[in-house]
Write a protein that binds this DNA or RNA. Structure first.
Lengths: 210, 210, 210, 210
DNA sequence: GATGAATGAGCTTTCATTCAT
DNA sequence: GATGAATGAAAGCTCATTCAT
C-alpha cells in the first residue's frame, strides 16, 4: 500500500512499456553483434556500446551474459518454429509443405546465420549438462519432435516412402537445410539462397518419394 | 669455414628430428584437450601442462595459439581427406564409393567431434577474412573441389542423374554426414553411428540415382 | 501571506509525522539485514526491498549508506546506554549494579551481535579520522566516560579497591563482556549466554573487591 | 625426463628461492595494507602496487584474495602461538607465565592490530561455515585449547583457584588482552601499551588466585 | 632451447549514487 | 516525495604473450 500510493496506473504502464522497449533494444543489439561473431568473442561492453547504454545497464535487464543470449535465441527461434509447425500441420500436399518449410528455414538462416552456428554447438558437454542453455536445447528438441510426427503421418497416409525412420528424415532435412544455408552464407552468396531451395527439395523428395 | 662449419650434418639431423618430435608431442597434447573443450576455453598453460613442457616453450614451436591449432587441424584433416580422395578416384561403382566415403567421414567425426564443430565456424567473418585459419579454409575447399569433380565424372559417365549440379551434391553430402554425425554424437549414441550410414546412403542414393 | 500561508499546521504535522515513520521503517529494515550480514555485503537495493520502497527513496531520507547506518547504530545503542547508565547511577550495592549491567550488555549482544562486531572496527584509521561514524565513536566514548565515573565513585566510597584506575576498570569490564559474549554467540551457544554472566561477575568482582 | 633435462639443480634452487622471496614480498605488502584497512576495502590492485608487481602476478602466487590473506594470517599467528605455548608449558610460577604471555600478546597486537580486528569476525556465519578461513579458525581454536590445558594444570596443582572453568579463564584472558590492546591502539596511545600489562595481570590474578 | 615468472589488457559483474519522470 | 532506470567506476580474476635466466 506504501510504494504504489502515489503513482498513477498510466505512469506505471508507460514505464513498463519503456522498459520492455529497452529490453528489446538490448536484445536487438546483441543479436546484431552475434550475427558477426562467436559468442565467446562478444563482450558485454560491446553489446552495451551497440545498444547505446552503459555496461551496468545490461544487468538491470538480464542477470548475466548467458541469460541475455538465451533470450536472444528463444525470441528469434520461437516465431520461426511456430510458423514452420503451422505449415507442417496444414492439409497441403506433403511436397508443398516441404517446399515451404525449406524456404522458411533457408530464409531465416539467411538473416540469422549466427544462430545456426551456435545451435550446432548446443550438443557439447557444456550445454547438454543442465545449464544456462537447457531451455534452448529443449525448445529445439520440441520442434524436432513435432516435425518428426509430420513425417510419421505422411508415411502412414502413404504420401512418402516408409523405408526410412521419420526421426531420421526430420534430422536429415534439418542437416541439409543448415548445411546448405551455412555454406551459402559463408561464401557471401546470400543472393543465391533461394536458388538453393529447389535442389534440396528435389534431392530430398526423390529420396523419400513413394 | 662458414658459420655452420662446426656442426656435423648428423647432429643437425638429430636435432631437427628431436625438434619435430616435440612439435608433434605438443600438437598431440593440444588435440587431446580439444577433444574435450571449446577452443576458447583451452589455455596455453593447459596445453603446456598436458605436453609436459613450460608455457614459454610452446612459443618456440608455434607463433601463437591460433597457429598451433591450425596445425592441429591440418594434421588431422589431411590424412582423412587423402584417404577419401583416393576412394573417390578409384574405379569402384559409384554407390560403393559413396558408402565408403560416408563411412570414413562418420567414423572420423565419431572420434573427432570437436573438429567438425570448429569447422562449422570457419565461415564466420573472422575467419574468411584472411586470417589465422585461412589455410584451413583452403584445405577444406580443395577437398570439396575434388569431391565435386568425382560427382561430375559420375554424371558424365551416366552413373548418376545429372539433374543437380555436382557442386550442390558435394555440399549436400557433406551437410548430411556432418549433421547426422553431430546429432548422433551429441546424443551420446555413438555406438549407433554405423547404423546411420545406411539411411544416409539410401536417402542420398535414391535422390541421385539415374 | 508568506510562502507557507496555504499549508495548515496540522497538515505540516501530519506530513512530518509520516516522514518520521518512514525513516523508522527504513532504519528498521537496515537493522534487520545488518543482523545477518557484514556492512560491506549489504546493498542499498537490498535495504530498499526490505523496507518496501524504491532505492532512490532512501536518498530522500539519508544522504548515503554510511549516514543511514550511523542512525541505525545510534538508535539501537542509545537506549542500551541510557538503561545502563540509569543502573550505574542508582543506589544499589555496587556488585548488584555490576551484575545488572553485565546482564544488560550480554543480552543486548545476544540479539545484536553484528553491532558489536562493527563497533570493534570503529577504531580503525578510516573511522577515528573525522568521518561518517565520528558521531558513533563519540557516543561510545561518552558512555565509557560516565561508566568510568561510576567506578570512581565506588572507589571513593570504599566499595571497591582503588588499586586499578577507574578508566582501566571500565574498559576491562567492556572487554570482558564483549569478548565473552562474542565467543558465545560465535559458537552458537546462545542459550548459554546467561550462564556466562556469573563467571564474569565472579572473576571481575574478586579482582576489584576491597 | 623431458622438462628437467636441461636445467641444473642449482638454477632450479635459485629460482625457487626467488619465488619464495617474492611470495614473502607479497605477503608483507598485503600485511602492511591490512594494518591500515578493513579486508573488504583492500583491493588486489592495491596490494600489487604496494608489492611493486602487476595485478596478475598475485595470481601466480595465490589462487585468490582470500587465500592470500589466509597465508598472511597464518604466517603471523603461528610464531606468536608457538612462543606463547612454549611459555605456558614451562615450569615457571603461574603468575610469571601469565605476565609473559600477556606481554607477548599485547606487544603483538601493538604491531599487528589489524589481525585482531579480523580475528574477532571469524565467528561470523560467513567464516564458521566451512570456507576459505576454516584453517585459521582451527589454528586459533587449537591455541585456545592448549591454553585451556595450562589453566587446568594450574588448578590441579593448586596454583590457582578452581572456582571458574579453565575454558572460561582462557577465553576471559584472551578477551581482556584483545579488548585492552585494541582500545590502546585505537587511541594511538601505543606507547602506553606496556603500562597496560600490569593492571590486566593484577585484575586477572586477584580474580583467580587461590 | 627451455623455463616459468611477469605482464597488462581484457573479461564479467556489482553497486552507491543520480536524476528524469 | 517516490520511483526505478541509468550510470560508471570499481572489483576479482584469466590468460596469451614476452623475456631474463
Amino acid at each position: 500500500m506504501n510504494r504504489d500510493s502515489e503513482i498513477s496506473p498510466e505512469a506505471t504502464d508507460r514505464r513498463s512499456r519503456k522498459r520492455e522497449e529497452k529490453r528489446q533494444t538490448i536484445i536487438a543489439a546483441a543479436e546484431r553483434i552475434f550475427h558477426e561473431k562467436d559468442l565467446s568473442h562478444i563482450s558485454m561492453e560491446e553489446i552495451a556500446r551497440e545498444a547505446d547504454v552503459a555496461a551496468g545497464t545490461l544487468y538491470n535487464y538480464f542477470p548475466g551474459k548467458e541469460a541475455l543470449f538465451l533470450e536472444v535465441f528463444v525470441n528469434k527461434l520461437t516465431p520461426l518454429f511456430d510458423e514452420a509447425l503451422a505449415e507442417w500441420e496444414s492439409d497441403a500436399p506433403f511436397k508443398e509443405k516441404l517446399r515451404l518449410v525449406v524456404n522458411l528455414h533457408m530464409s531465416f538462416i539467411h538473416s540469422h546465420k549466427g544462430f545456426y552456428e551456435f545451435l550446432m554447438t548446443l550438443g557439447q558437454p557444456d550445454f547438454t549438462a543442465p545449464g544456462p542453455f537447457t531451455g534452448l536445447v529443449e525448445l529445439c528438441e520440441g520442434y524436432l519432435t513435432r516435425q518428426t510426427r509430420a513425417f510419421e503421418r505422411a508415411q502412414e497416409s502413404g504420401e512418402i516412402s516408409n523405408t526410412l525412420s521419420p526421426k531420421f528424415l526430420a534430422r536429415a532435412l534439418r542437416s541439409l537445410c543448415w548445411g546448405m544455408a551455412t555454406e551459402a552464407v559463408n561464401r557471401r552468396k546470400t543472393q543465391d539462397l533461394d536458388s538453393e531451395v529447389e535442389p534440396i527439395l528435389e534431392l530430398f523428395w526423390k529420396g523419400i518419394a513413394q
